[in-house]
Amino acid sequence: MATVKVLFLILLWKTSFLHNEAGLVVFAPSPHRAQLGENFVLPCSFKVDDPSINIQFFATLWLFQGNEVLRLDNKGTLSQPRMSINQQDITKGIANMEIRNVTLSDIGKYRCIIIYSPQKEFKDIDLSVYATPLVKIEKVKKEDKTSSALCSVMGFYPRNISVEILMDGTIMEDSVLSEHRTNADGTYSVNKTWTIPTDVSPKMLSCSVRHETLSPSVQKDLQLGYEAFLHNEAGLVVFAPSPHRAQLGENFVLPCSFKVDDPSIIIQFFATLWLFQGNEVLRLDNKGTVSQPRMSINQQDITKGIANMEIRNVTLSDIGKYRCIIIYSPQKKFKDIDLTVYGKYYILYKHQTAMYVVNAPIIKAAST
Rank of each mutant, 00 (worst) to 15 (best):
E21G: 06
E21Y: 14
N86P: 01
L72V: 11
D49E: 06
L24S: 03
F8C: 06
K75A: 03
S52V: 15
V69Q: 07
K5Q: 07
G66W: 15
D73C: 08
R82S: 06
G37S: 06
Q65I: 04
P29H: 04
T77Y: 03
G23P: 07
M83F: 13
H19G: 03
F40E: 04
T60M: 08
L63W: 10
K5S: 02
F57H: 07
I85L: 09
N67R: 15
L11C: 08
A22Q: 03
N20K: 13
N54L: 05
N74Q: 13
D73K: 14
S79Q: 09
G76M: 10
I85C: 00
T60Q: 04
W62Y: 11
F27H: 12
V41I: 15
T15I: 13
Q88S: 11
S16N: 05
E68Q: 14
P31K: 10
R33N: 10
A2Q: 08
I85N: 01
I10L: 13
I85T: 02
D50G: 01
M83Q: 14
F57R: 13
G66D: 09
T60K: 00
S30I: 14
G66N: 08
L9A: 09
V48P: 00
V25H: 06
D50N: 02
N74V: 14
L9S: 04
L18N: 10
